[in-house]
Design a protein around this nucleic acid. Structure first.
Lengths: 256, 256
DNA sequence: GGGCAAGTGGAGGGTGTCGTCCACTTAGGG
DNA sequence: CCCTAAGTGGACGACACCCTCCACTTGCCC
């Protein structure tokens, strides 16, 4: 077999965003990622792969070739979302007021958590197959502990506050993610406020005001309705075996 | 077809706990319920019906005849668990100290919530098909509001506390249910304490002590491992299509 | 103890998802 | 413009689960 004649060899570590892809392939890859984000956000990361493919207006094969396992897809899809978190983290660390920084950070993360079901799963459960996650997490954890320590030193967190209370809080908020985002979001805010008031080192004798309580009554609760993903553009009737909106393809004769 | 000759006709409303069942049938029904509780607790209410049947050492047909739909089974399986809640409710209402009553009630409910995955689903999401649930819920909600009102009047809850904060709290705690029970339980306790301190009308300048923080770090989180249900008695190797322990039958020649 | 309605187990058809395979299309360098 | 390797879509076998159907067994009343 002749060695590859043209094209520079794929440098190691390019597995992330393979630049050595034909133009159309790269386009499709992007399209799949976008579709995945949408579908996962609405239906959770357990949504059928075919739904993602459908939405991307792409065959399943294409999807599987680019992302051999579900978790590869999930990882790739939420990569930048996690990057945003990392940025928020940086900002929190840089904030001269550690308490304020921490609060802002958590509010940001919680907002995403409660808005995007896919992200919620990824963030909370992680995908063990995605190796970097663990590393990233460990690092994050360390820096988090530092942030907490700083806030505590500044007298903004009670003495018995534990860094592990942050995951506790996140887990609690993620419990709200089962609600539709428009109730979950105010609910999360209110919960956060309650908790932060409790985290104070020296609570004022009259606690601060609360954001409004969402109409969140148990009898109205449903299993998250697996929102069918408001059809993006076209309005063709759904067909085929699994439900979901149909693709709109920017006019391109493909296939046999 | 001749009308039923013997046996008194089934009085209406007997659908709940049919006494007009042959002895063996009643036995089996009970066995199925027990199996369902175990399986649902460990694997969640979405566990395959065949797993329940297997554990009950009963054919699927038996299960389906007795409980035509999944939610019928779920409803029946958690009936008494819900009754326990109702009792706790009564106790809370009867408690001369409304704040204490409320706290005790919530701690009880949260404990169950966090210990039993099946109950968590049922309690939070309800099974819309189970009509009584809604009724029961509405009633519960009303009494809950009353309990809250009483505590607030007694100066034990802050003015801006809303009855809807109870579902909020429950939802939050249910977020912890994704953890294995032995971490989830202390986590729930700590979360509850934080929240209750925040609910106080007149927080002391030095907040009360917290229960210990569980080692709950994000990097170690897994999707609940769908615990394979510690085999109850016998130890035969699993076989057949779906995993799970094999039944132990108290020696009884049945079937072909 | 005998008869029969009530009860039983498991086979099997239906459905939905996964992931692969292959005949065909197309980008893009020469 | 042409050729070929890279890329593509959808059919398809495997699999898990759902739920029904039916030949057979068994409790229970006489």
């Amino acid at each position: 077999m002749p060695d590859q004649t043209s094209h520079n060899p794929p440098e190691p570590g390019t597995a992330e965003a393979p630049a050595e892809l034909r133009a159309d392939a790269r386009r499709n890859r992007e399209r799949v990622l976008e579709a995945a984000r949408e579908v996962f956000a609405a239906r959770g990361v357990d949504a059928p792969m075919s739904a993602v493919a459908r939405r991307a207006a792409v065959g399943v094969a294409t999807l599987y070739r680019r992302f051999p396992t579900r978790s590869a897809l999930v990882t790739a899809a939420f990569e930048d979302q996690l990057a945003v978190c990392a940025t928020a983290f940086e900002e929190a660390m840089a904030d001269p007021d550690p308490g304020h920084g921490l609060y802002t950070l958590l509010e940001k993360v919680c907002t995403t958590l409660v808005t995007d079901r896919g992200f919620e799963t990824v963030f909370m459960a992680g995908f063990p197959e995605a190796l970097d996650y663990d590393r990233e997490r460990a690092c994050a954890e360390e820096r988090l502990a530092h942030l907490v320590q700083r806030a505590r030193d500044a007298g903004q967190l009670r003495e018995d506050f534990d860094p592990a209370d942050i995951p506790l809080l996140l887990l609690a908020v993620s419990g709200l993610a089962a609600q539709p985002p428009d109730t979950a979001l105010p609910a999360a805010r209110r919960l956060l406020t309650y908790l932060f008031q409790s985290f104070q080192a020296h609570p004022p004798s009259r606690p601060g005001p609360l954001p409004p309580a969402p109409a969140l009554d148990l009898s109205g609760l449903h299993r998250p309705p697996a929102a069918p993903l408001a059809a993006a553009t076209a309005g063709e009737a759904a067909a085929g075996t699994d439900r979901g909106p149909r693709p709109r393809r920017p006019a391109r004769s493909a296939g046999r």
